[in-house]
């Protein structure tokens, strides 16, 4: 810089200025989907919440009221339904973890033809519609189903069928959610390199220690994602609890449907929906948080 002399030094343009300039285009690109989501998802939620909070008053106007919520949370039957929904969801999450983790570990760490068959078997429920699954469940585990007939043939007493008990939906929903859970766990396990595991064994870790100290911490996020995905679906599921579950208490899905259709109380049905949504959003936040944590790394 000879000519510049004592003049103000020209500041070099920051190279990443273009980044900030490009941002509006990126926003434009996502604007359409965001608007669509806003219209189809966010707005109905907001409107539902508003409709449960501002209800028609006697004078023809609208007034703020918590009436339906108060009713829901003081009504024995509604609370039972909420409890059984939470219980079913928790049970399903537990069973999914207990069943899917060993399956995915097996699929990840064994080689040959057999794991391929096991994998297709584990993914199979994904292609079976819930209603067919429910029918199969009734034919196998229902009263006078295949299991009963087999037991009878060898002179054993009948089973107490889970059909029309809270266990019915649990069994059906677990079966239904195995594929998704296995797939998500498998993708998580794919990130654990063989060498990382062999290195752990090399320094003296036995299999359980490898699982506990090396594998589980690395797939913690996948477990969280898998569980929040299936839990979200299970909490608000309809078909399987409707067909396989008991008449009372019933899960939130059938409960809403019955309140809306049979009892003809849309106001109450919407309240139940908002409450269900409230629980789902908690699971959703779990998912978002784990994704964000992953991104941060």
């Amino acid at each position: 810089m000879s000519a510049a002399g004592g003049a103000v030094q020209a500041q070099p343009e920051p190279l990443d200025e273009s980044e900030t300039r490009r941002r509006p285009y990126g926003l434009l690109l996502v604007a359409a989907p965001v608007l669509l989501v806003g219209w189809l998802v966010i707005w109905p939620i907001v409107s539902a919440v508003i409709r449960t909070l501002w209800q028609p008053a006697d004078d023809g106007g609208y007034e703020f009221t918590l009436e339906t919520y108060v009713f829901f949370f003081s009504d024995r039957y509604s609370l039972d339904n909420l409890t059984v929904t939470l219980w079913t969801t928790g049970m399903c999450a537990l069973f999914l973890l207990v069943i899917c983790l060993p399956i995915s570990l097996y699929l990840r760490f064994s080689v040959g033809r057999l794991p391929a068959y096991v994998q297709s078997l584990a993914i199979f429920p994904m292609f079976v519609p819930s209603i067919i699954l429910a029918y199969a469940f009734i034919r196998v585990l229902g009263p006078n189903g295949m299991v009963d007939i087999l037991l009878n043939a060898v002179g054993l007493p009948k089973i107490r069928t889970p059909y029309l008990t809270p266990w019915g939906p649990v069994i059906g929903l677990v079966w239904d959610n195995i594929p998704l859970t296995v797939l998500i766990l498998l993708s998580g396990l794919g990130n654990v390199s063989n060498q990382a595991i062999e290195a752990a064994r090399d320094v003296g870790a036995r299999w359980l220690q490898v699982l506990w100290y090396i594998i589980l911490p690395r797939i913690g996020n996948s477990i969280l994602v898998a569980l929040s995905f299936s839990v979200l679906g299970i909490f608000s599921s309809f078909t399987l609890p409707y067909v396989l579950g008991p008449a009372a208490p019933e899960m939130m899905g059938p409960f809403m449907q019955r309140t809306f259709r049979d009892v003809n109380d849309p106001q109450m049905a919407i309240t139940q929906a908002v409450i269900t949504f409230g629980f789902c959003i908690v699971f959703g936040l779990f998912y978002v948080r784990s994704v964000a944590r992953n991104r941060g790394k």
Binding site: Q195, A196, E198, A199, A200, D202, V203, G204, A205, R206
Partner: peptide, 15 residues
């Protein structure tokens, strides 16, 4: 895990 050997792998083996 029972051998008195220590192995250093080519890469990707840190936890």
């Amino acid at each position: 895990e029972k051998r008195p050997t220590g192995m250093v792998f080519q890469s990707h083996a840190l936890w």
